[in-house]
């Protein structure tokens, strides 16, 4: 049903349990929720922007050490994680589409698939960290027997901080998706009041967008 028709039918709004009384219509409520989520995502982008600015400044200061650090990272594992996250973005976008169509079962299955992809991402990332620790690479240059170059220490510290913060966002995103999937299965999120699925998907896509920039900066831009 088009939005204009939904707004014209007050019984539809009244019958929807998710509608909060101070919103004129479900459409306005969904718009407010979307705007709030986008502003939150913008603040998240600014959080990561500070770290990206640090990365850029230190890369200008230590270009050779940063290129060496990129060469030393596990390019295949990082690229595999890119594939996993891009696929998860696709599945969660499909979940939103199925939610709009009223297919709660398919929507929940796609959310579960996205959760599995998030879990796979974390397993691959943990494997990567374990390889680094085995090689004596730690944040801040700690744990290394030989004194590494200052630029390399900065690179690895930024690597652990930025990918670690991103991994925390993956965990939070998985929790949001899990709660959303449970609500969908329980019949508490259904059309036309299905914007919680879209909001959870928006957060997950942000996690993907941040990784889209982390991947080249930490895995692909070596000595060239």
């Amino acid at each position: 049903m088009p939005p204009s028709e939904r707004e014209a039918d007050p019984s539809d709004v009244a019958a929807t349990p998710a509608t909060v009384p101070y919103f004129e219509s479900l459409e306005r409520q969904a718009h407010a929720a979307h705007l709030g989520m986008w502003v939150f995502l913008a603040s998240e982008a600014l959080l990561f922007a500070g770290l990206f600015a640090l990365y850029a400044a230190y890369r200008v200061e230590h270009p050779a050490a940063f290129a060496a650090g990129v060469e030393g990272n596990a390019r295949v594992l990082g690229s595999l994680n890119t594939l996993v996250l891009l696929t998860s973005s696709f599945t969660v976008a499909l979940a939103v589409q199925q939610s709009r169509s009223g297919h709660a079962g398919r929507c929940a299955a796609l959310l579960a698939t996205t959760l599995l992809a998030g879990g796979a991402f974390l397993v691959i990332k943990a494997t990567e960290y374990r390889l680094h620790f085995h090689e004596g690479v730690f944040p801040g240059g700690f744990g290394s027997d030989v004194a590494p170059r200052q630029g390399l220490v900065v690179f690895h510290t930024l690597y652990f901080v930025m990918t670690g913060l991103h991994a925390i966002h993956v965990v939070v995103g998985m929790a949001v998706l899990l709660v959303t999937a449970i609500r969908v299965v329980g019949g508490r999120v259904r059309p036309p009041a299905d914007h919680p699925v879209a909001l959870a998907a928006l957060y997950w896509h942000l996690v993907d967008v941040i990784w889209i920039f982390l991947w080249p900066l930490f895995y692909l831009t070596g000595r060239g």
Binding site: A45, A49, A56
Partner: peptide
């Protein structure tokens, strides 16, 4: 999305670009 949402996203994008450009420009 609506113009208000696109404006919020554009403002965030501009601020991110300014932050990174000033830091890199300084160094």
């Amino acid at each position: 999305e609506s113009a208000s949402i696109r404006l919020a996203v554009a403002a965030a994008g501009l601020l991110v670009a300014l932050l990174i450009a000033f830091v890199v420009g300084d160094v």
